[in-house]
Every structure is written in C-alpha cells, then in structure tokens.
Nucleic acid binder design. Structure first.
Lengths: 211, 211
DNA sequence: TATGATTGTGAGTGGAGACTCATGTTGTCA
DNA sequence: TGACAACATGAGTCTCCACTCACAATCATA
C-alpha cells in the first residue's frame, strides 16, 4: 500500500505504461487488427509470421510488441471480451430484458460459427490475469441477463448460471467445429431455449422430473 | 458369426489384407491400445514417439503399421465408432426405447468429459472413407433411437435428426473443453432433454388422445 | 538540423515432431 | 535346422514455427 500520490506517477490513462511513439502505435494497432482476422479464420495455430506478413511488418516487430504469441492472443481476447461486455450491457438495458439472454446466446453462437476466436476465448487459450477480469465481467453480465430473464418468466427459476454458461460454451464449440449453418443454429437453439423456458406453469416442474 | 471351413483358407479376418506375422500382430494391437489411451488423455497432438514408447516399440514400428499419424488416429476412431454403434444397437433393442436416446447422449457426454478422443472423433480429425461408413452407421443408429423416442412421446415430433446431432456434438465439445463435472453434466443435459421433450402433456403418460 | 532514444528488420537459433532407411533381428516353413 | 522374407530398430532428415539479436531506420526533442 505504499504508493506515491504524485500525479507525475501516472503519465497516461491507458493503463500505467509508457506512451508509444506514433509509428509504434500505428503498427501495434495494425498487428492486432490483422491478428484478429487471421486467428478468427485459422484458429490459434496460425503462425505469427502470417500475422506479420498481413500487417506488413517484420516478424521481429510483432514480437517487440507482444513478447509471446500467447500475449498477442490474449490482447485479442481482451478486446473481444470488452466488446462482448458492451453488448451485454446494451441487452441488459434494452426494452426486452426477458429475451436478452436468448439474443445474446444466439449472437455468440452465430459468431462462433464464423470466428474461431470466440470459441478459443472460451476454452483453449490459457486465461491469465489480464483476461480474467473481463471474463469475470462476462460471467456477471450473463448472470444479470439470466436474473432478468428469470424474473420476466422467460427462463425457469431453477436454472443456474453455470448451466447457462455450459450450454453457451457447448453450443459455441458445436457451431464452430461442426460448421452449423444459420438454419441449423436457429433450430438447435430453439430446442435449448425451450428447455430453459420450461412449461408456462413453473410450479409443476420444480423437482423430481429429471429423468 | 460365419465360420470358415479351413483355417488355411482365411488369409485374414480383418478386412481383406495380408495376414500378419505373430509378433507383428501383437505389436499392432499393443500400439492401438496404447495410442487409444495416450490420445484420449492428451488429444491428437500427442506425439507418435510417446505412443511408441508406451507400447515398448521403436517409432519406426509404429510407422510401419500405420504409414501416417492420421492413419493411426483413424484406426482408433474406427474402433471407437464400432463400439458406439454396438451401444446404440443395445439401446435400441432395450426395454426402455423412449429413454434410449437420452441414455446414449448422457453416456457420450460423460465419455467426452474424460476422453478427448470422443470429441476428436466428431470433428477435429479428418474423416476418410475408412471411417465414413461407421459414422454413417452412428448417424443411422441415433436416427433409430430418435424415431423410437418420438414414437414413445419422449421427444417432440418435430425434432429433427440434425438438431439432435448438433446438440450431441455441442454438448460433447463443451463437456470436454470446459471440463464439466458429473453434476454439471447432469443438470445441463436435463435442460436440453427438457427442450427435446417439449411439454409433457403433449404426448406421453401412456394415455391416449394425444393431440 | 543534429542527436539520441525508440522502433523496425530479418537472417539465425533451437526445439519439436512427423517420417525415412540402411541395417540388424526374428518368425515361419521347407 | 537353415534360409529367407517379414519385421523391428533408432539415428537421422526435413519441415515448421516460436523466438532472438546485432544492426539499420525512424521519430521526437533541443
């Protein structure tokens, strides 16, 4: 807790590190943008050289900005998670809160079917502290949507958060690996949503009906 | 169970190729067994050397039996698919046909959570002609179970085969990558099964006059 | 503009892993 | 039991890829 309070200690608002030179900043952004596209298409096994080539820089430049391939992947994850969190907030504040959860799941599965990154995000890449915070936010965002959905009666009251997250990850993985088309996505999700909704008369199905 | 008359007349019992020398047959079986365990634990990225070491043979021996790592993987897939198909037949012939589909899905998801091979089988490894036949059988087996389940009223009538297969792959992937424990598996599957069932008043209860 | 610090460059290094092949070993059958 | 084909061996080749570093280019500041 022994921290100085001098304003000179916080040179910037971007997180506590030195400001980048103009060209460096430009390259960094270019690399992230290209990497996002490349990894989205080919998955995390795509080579760093391909990213460098796409960004029009030498491979050394990529490693100057991101000391490790893993670091690059996590930078992308972070951006992706932030965007997802914004989406969640918007849905939570929307005018149809009961449907927000379904909308979000639908959207994520659709993205997963097209971008490997989304799925990677949820499982394959190691999660370190950089990403952990955003992931926690995502969890909380889904929880908020779930709460609203339960309160609105769109989702059964006994559905738990970890079940929803499990379904979300499973559906995303399935959509990606098996290459579901939009129609199949829609129909499959409809079944799952039906399960989440349960019958209109919620009281009847409280417990005991499993198996 | 078609028995041949002369042992000398059957050059092989494995599908139409040359008979193996005793030691070769022994090694081949050993390799498959070890590979199954290794790939189940570490996924298809485990090295061929590890398999060789586990089987107590040199790496050249592995490549003598399976010219390619891919070939080895597919040999395993084939065995796995055959076992799954047997399981399907048993369930289809069982005394609770309506529940057979649910039992099968539950079983597969449980295996997926413990063995990477099952999931690989469904997506990651390339499928060639060797495996394609068994995969088709699997598909048909699930279809048979689905038919029975629909007829028994355990599954809604408008549920299609590709939807069930999509759910199956998604759940398996999810269970593997996110490492669901048995409890979470059960609860998550319960939601999906609920979705497959639809409203209970629609069909089952062994009462007539279903709308 | 001059100067130094920051950044970019890309051939090079090291390691991992699939696959080969010349040589040694073993099962099988006459 | 001898002889040979079938089989096993494992060091070596080849390719790919993450990551490094000595040096060159470029930006920011006086």
């Amino acid at each position: 807790m022994t921290s100085t309070k001098s304003p000179a200690d916080r040179p910037d608002d971007s997180g506590g590190v030195k400001p980048l030179r103009a060209d460096a900043r430009r390259n960094r952004e270019r690399i992230i943008a290209v990497a996002e596209a490349v990894f989205a298409e080919k998955g995390p096994s795509a080579s760093t050289e391909e990213v460098a080539a796409g960004a029009g820089v030498a491979i050394g430049t990529v490693f100057k900005h991101f000391p490790t391939k893993q670091a690059l992947l996590q930078a992308i994850m972070k951006g992706l998670l932030e965007r997802l969190n914004e989406q969640l907030s918007a849905l939570a504040a929307g005018d149809r809160p009961g449907e927000g959860l379904f909308t979000f799941v639908t959207e994520m599965v659709d993205q997963a079917a097209r971008k490997r990154t989304v799925v990677t995000l949820l499982a394959e890449t190691g999660v370190d502290l950089q990403v952990a915070g955003s992931l926690q936010s995502l969890r909380e965002g889904v929880e908020a949507l779930l709460d609203r959905a339960r309160r609105a009666g769109t989702v059964r009251e006994d559905v738990r958060l970890d079940e929803v997250l499990a379904l979300l990850t499973g559906l995303c993985h399935g959509a990606l690996h098996a290459g579901w088309d939009v129609d199949l996505q829609r129909r499959t999700l409809a079944i799952v949503f039906e399960g989440l909704r349960g019958q209109p008369d919620a009281a009847a199905r409280s417990r005991g009906s499993i198996r």
